[in-house]
């Protein structure tokens, strides 16, 4: 005969096991979704992937279409975005952590503003880029306008990640440097940035990979869909991989879906290799410090 207590305990344990199974299947769902997504992309696109696909210009004929101009546009845009956004983001983080008076209203305003900017939809940055860079500053629909737009978009991410990294620098290290009569900026260069570098690097690369996958803000500033030349200067018009993929995805023909998938494979490979570089660099820095 089972007592009331025993029955109760059995019931509670059963409930617990059920929840465990439910939660575990949620995780499995996420994993399956990731696998399905990758399977879908690779099964559609792998057959279209070839050297000529990478070196050809886009075309009305799916068999001849390639991503050369989009790839070049992406590399140009992201290169400029890195040049603009990393110094600005790290500089702002250094200002907030090392120079600003943490209790002043100005610092609090800056922090609140950065947190809010991080939540602004990317398409809104596109409108800002359209109004300010394309029309007002007359950069037209150029790589420069695109890179500046993406810079503003990822700036909050870089700032927040860099701030975290700078905060993690132990204050005895800073004091050790100041006590030698070393100035603030020299201490930043000599102790703070080297120590915070892995964190800054990881955050920046994550932010830049986000910029690399963005299509919406660049569509807003009018990055054209059909570009059949390789850009030669930052003031040339351009397209990027995600926009090229978008254009192909919007076509009803199955062939275009396949080359869209091939384009996605290239994009994913680029993103993954950037993250791999981040991991390698981070490990290198960390080894040097231990």
């Amino acid at each position: 005969m089972e007592t009331f207590q025993q029955k109760n305990i059995r019931k509670r344990k059963l409930k617990n096991s059920i929840l465990h199974i439910v939660l575990a299947s949620i995780i499995v769902f996420s994993i399956i979704m990731l696998l399905l997504l990758l399977y879908q992309v690779f099964s559609e696109g792998l057959s279209r992937l070839s050297w000529s696909f990478i070196t050809s210009m886009p075309s009305r004929f799916p068999d001849r279409a390639g991503i050369a101009s989009a790839l070049a546009g992406s590399i140009w845009t992201i290169g400029l975005t890195i040049i603009f956004s990393v110094p600005l983001g790290v500089g702002t983080a250094l200002y907030l952590e090392e120079y600003a008076n943490q209790k002043s209203w100005w610092t609090k305003l800056l922090q609140l503003n950065i947190a809010n900017l991080a939540g602004v939809p990317s398409i809104v940055y596109g409108m800002l880029g359209l109004a300010v860079f394309v029309k007002f500053l007359h950069f037209n629909r150029s790589i420069l306008a695109g890179a500046l737009t993406l810079t503003l978009l990822i700036l909050p991410v870089i700032i927040v990640a860099s701030q975290e990294a700078i905060k993690s620098v132990p204050s005895p290290l800073k004091e050790g440097s100041y006590a030698l009569g070393v100035s603030k900026w020299q201490t930043i260069v000599g102790v703070i940035v080297p120590y915070a570098a892995p964190g800054i690097l990881t955050g920046s690369i994550l932010a830049v990979s986000r910029a690399m996958g963005e299509a919406a803000p660049l569509i807003m500033i009018g990055a054209a869909g059909y570009i059949s030349f390789l850009p030669k200067s930052p003031l040339d018009s351009f397209t990027v991989l995600p926009i090229q993929i978008f254009n192909w995805t919007s076509r009803p023909q199955a062939e275009f879906a396949e080359i869209a998938a091939a384009g996605i494979i290239v994009l994913l490979v680029l993103l993954l290799s950037m993250n791999a570089i981040a991991i390698v660099l981070r490990n290198k820095y960390q080894n040097r410090m231990d």
Binding site: S30, M33, L34, L36, L37, Q40, V41, E44, L206, S209, R210, M212, G213, E214, A215, A216, P242, I245, F246, T249, A257, A260, A261, I264, L267, L268, L271, N275
Partner: peptide, 16 residues
Amino acid sequence: LAGIPSIVYGFFALTF
């Protein structure tokens, strides 16, 4: 999953 560009999710939605 969080790092995959939304354009890829768009493709996945439409074709899968």
